[in-house]
Design a protein around this nucleic acid. Sequence first.
DNA 1: CGTATAAATGCAATTTTGTTGCAGAAAGCG
DNA 2: CGCTTTCTGCAACAAAATTGCATTTATACG
Lengths: 162, 162
Amino acid sequence: MTEKPKHGSAELDRLDLKILDVLQRDNKTPQRTIAEMIHLSAPAVQRRIKRMEEFGVIQANVALVDPAKVDQSITLFVEVEMESERAELYEAAKRSFSAAPEVQQCYYVTGEADFILIIIVRTMPDYEALTRKLFFGNNNVKRFRTFVSMERVKVGLSVPLE
Amino acid sequence: MTEKPKHGSAELDRLDLKILDVLQRDNKTPQRTIAEMIHLSAPAVQRRIKRMEEFGVIQANVALVDPAKVDQSITLFVEVEMESERAELYEAAKRSFSAAPEVQQCYYVTGEADFILIIIVRTMPDYEALTRKLFFGNNNVKRFRTFVSMERVKVGLSVPLE
DNA sequence: CGTATAAATGCAATTTTGTTGCAGAAAGCG
DNA sequence: CGCTTTCTGCAACAAAATTGCATTTATACG
């Protein structure tokens, strides 16, 4: 038709990207509205969204909550350095970090650290207790370095879609 | 009624927190479904959600996109250290960082760094170009340290709701 | 080059979900 | 106590999402 369509494969065309662009900002945008934006019908938009969800392009649809409004006002960054590089110990650490609700994000990285964590807590004593559980309680953690966030300048999980 | 209600203030009761808990996971959950979970009527749930949106407790409703599925597969962490501490220069830096779509998150922190950025790019040359624009192009940036993410162990913006 | 096949689309009907008006119940307050 | 405010549920309503179906478009292939 007008745009380059996609066949059996997982390809996303310009219209799909535009849909994602909208949904990344506000996934409550009516399909009709999106349809008008990209000159498609609502059902077409709906099918594309469904397809992208099935394909995992869209991983989840979530509400973003302001931590401060629920009294979870302290954001922390932690660089964690591990002692041993044994795979099983890494996996155990990953599971441990992932399981903690205070750990909002956890990345395994290269460089001077092994993991980088983003943590949200209500109070510093809460953080202290968490470090005891996650780091001191894990004797494969060699050391960790904490940064305290003073301002959340930009927060989101939007992926750039050129 | 059954639960501790809220009056003029911004207080969130147990039911509000439960609603947030659901919406943080899947904001497409029908209000009727949530209503059943917490033993309320759908309109009651709808009003609570509306109120929390107006109050800013719910900041946004978004779709989470898998970066890899749109060929944006490199996640980077950058600790940025600034030269001068003059407020206006900080503000300028914040604006510059925030304006870049590749910068997914930006936090102003205490400690050995001033800013921590989470960046998503398609290729390393893209990152190189970005550093030139954001860091080398800003002569108030003293130095920056990059970590490359090898695995996104846990990614989200969920706030712990005890 | 035309024909067969697969894929995507639009429209209209249907279903599901969200929204609103209103009367009644619960909680705070003088 | 009785008044006021705030919620709530129910039922009607509006809006949005979803489905079936015929048609158009694109790709593959003879």
